[in-house]
């Protein structure tokens, strides 16, 4: 490639280069734009009243108009969500390791966990309000309760699926349970753990907004429910937009962390 006698060819390649668009990279932006455009056109075509479905242009207007309460409440929701999620990471990792430690603990606690997870969290919020009053604390706890289950399940699965041969090789050398956990179990469950963070963070938003809607004076959930009671539908949608943006941002962060921490599990991309 370096010693090319016919130098017109590389020149023509470099000339064509800037014109090429990376469609895969551009796709998320184009599709989002397309969604908003279609939405706008639909609202115009059906002549929708703004109290039923506001057009995106009207929603962006509301974003500009109410940017201060939007920002304040978004930060509040981001705070409660992240705090609840952080607790879920610590608690989920700890409980996951505990459950994965032995078959008996796994058998004993797993049905309890499933039963607990099956309880709708909206039914738990009133109890939390009795215990802690309304506001930040029930939102954090709801975010925690809803998001720690996938972390527990994934970590425990990672531990429970150690290859028996690996365990035999190490046990024959006199390895104790703690050695096997530290050398094999925990590193092995890390891809499962980081993978579960992506699911957990989106669930954490569900939990905190749910609690804010039912029992809080702050946060996007509360803002949206009071906007709704005033028929300020564009502001409700502006709140949804803010949630979507926060959700995507946090998901992207978790995906990035996953890739950084457990590159070995994405072997095909690393081998190239």
């Amino acid at each position: 490639m370096t010693i090319v006698t016919d130098n017109t060819k590389p020149a023509s390649i470099t000339r064509r280069e800037p014109a090429r668009i990376n469609w895969v990279k551009a796709a998320p932006w184009l599709y989002t734009l397309g969604l908003f455009l279609a939405w706008e056109l639909l609202v115009i075509a059906l002549d929708m009243p703004v109290t039923i479905l506001p057009a995106p242009s009207r929603i962006f207007e509301a974003v500009v108009q109410y940017w201060s309460p939007l920002l304040k409440n978004s930060l509040q929701t981001l705070f409660t969500t992240t705090l609840g999620f952080g607790l879920a990471v610590v608690g989920g990792l700890a409980i996951g390791l505990f459950i994965g430690w032995s078959k008996t603990i796994y058998a004993g606690l797993y049905p309890l966990m499933i039963g607990f997870n099956a309880i709708p969290k909206v039914a738990v919020v009133p109890i939390l309000v009795i215990w802690f009053g309304i506001g930040t604390i029930p939102a954090v706890i709801t975010a925690f309760l809803i998001s720690f289950f996938p972390i527990v399940v994934n970590v425990a699965t990672g531990l429970a699926t150690i290859e028996p041969e690996t365990e035999d090789v190490l046990r024959a050398l006199g390895a104790r349970k703690i050695d096997i956990m530290l050398k094999v179990g925990i590193p092995r469950s890390m891809p499962y753990f980081f993978g579960s963070l992506k699911i957990a963070i989106t669930l954490a938003f569900v939990g905190s907004v749910l609690s804010e809607t039912v029992a809080s004076n702050y946060g996007l959930g509360n803002m949206m429910s009071s906007a709704q009671s005033q028929f300020n539908v564009p502001l409700v949608f502006a709140g949804l937009l803010a949630l979507a943006i926060e959700g995507i941002a946090m998901y992207a962060l978790m995906a990035w962390i996953e890739k950084r921490m457990t590159g070995w599990a994405h072997r095909s991309t690393m081998a190239n």
């Binding site: 290859e163 090789v169 024959a172 050398l173 390895a175 590193p187 092995r188 890390m190 457990t262 599990a265």
Partner: peptide, 30 residues
């Protein structure tokens, strides 16, 4: 378990997060 034994199975069971050298050194950590 007697630690004077080395074992190898049909499935090599090398740990993918360790380099080959680190994998070989694993028994010494046990």
């Amino acid at each position: 378990p007697v630690s004077i034994v080395g074992m190898a199975f049909q499935n090599p069971t090398l740990l993918p997060w360790r380099t080959t050298l680190e994998n070989i050194l694993l028994p010494l950590e046990i």
